[in-house]
Design a binder for these strands. Structure first.
Lengths: 144, 144
DNA sequence: GTTGAAAAAACAGAGGA
DNA sequence: TCCTCTGTTTTTTCAAC
């Protein structure tokens, strides 16, 4: 992991579909060398995947919320949540609640339906997302 | 947005670096047609970008937390947070707190330093992430 | 939406600092 | 070890339909 690897990670985080040839020009290194470095970053598990980012709103999902949940039966709860299409992220957390999850639904009504379905497993506190100043900032500082 | 578009989005969410030629084989449609559909999905803002997913742990960031924050000066707070490399996501939320942010740091000590720096802007409650059963589940159901 | 040719990129091997 | 160079294969682009 040197400065060149960090630059590659930064570029990949900005645009994962950038051709390797273009990256090789940007960082002034031959294409096979860049390819090999990317392969190693993947093998080491530093790069875990490449994903298209989708707009929830453009797909008709206009409501995002974070739900903190307290349950006594983690196993059943996780099974239930894994099967719930509304939940995009699930975190086990410290504190009064067991779990925090990010929920994306069409509207507040469908969020309410989801929360109703959850209530069999415990109790929750819901934080509605009003705006997202930024999301998914890079873990790599992009100075060279 | 028909079933083929949904399939493209699903494939792109699984692996954004999949060659379009491979996608065209998977969904049995000519490559220029797939390319044109992707271009339209980008133009419509349904696809907002392509990102490499990086492992925080493999980059030496072993602590993830969600911090709920209450501030009286949103403008200054957001400026401060935007300049903080530790914060990867920032959400404006409803409820007792103004903001929820996802914070990724090297360890609990560096998290404490960050929270100390924040304390000038208001008060917070921190939820430490103990485990992540899943993250970034697709908004598109991947049945065809 | 398809086909097919030209351009570009990715891959794989040989060899050098 | 890590890189560059180079020839081959694959993918992308762009024309015409």
């Amino acid at each position: 992991m040197d400065q060149i690897d960090r630059k590659i990670l930064s570029l990949m985080h900005e645009n994962a579909r950038m051709p390797i040839s273009e990256m090789s020009r940007t960082i002034s290194m031959s294409q096979p060398a860049v390819t090999e470095r990317i392969r190693k970053l993947e093998d080491q598990g530093i790069i875990t995947g490449y994903r298209a980012q989708l707009s929830g709103a453009k797909l008709g999902k206009h409501t995002t919320a974070f739900v903190m949940f307290k349950t006594d039966n983690c196993k059943d709860f996780v099974s239930f949540i894994e099967a719930s299409a509304e939940v995009v992220d699930l975190y086990r957390i410290s504190g009064e609640y067991n779990y925090l999850m990010k929920v994306v639904t069409e509207n507040t009504e469908s969020l309410a339906s989801f929360l109703d379905a959850c209530s069999a497993h415990g109790f929750s506190t819901t934080l509605i997302v009003l705006a997202t100043p930024f999301e998914d900032k890079s873990l790599i500082s992009n100075e060279v």
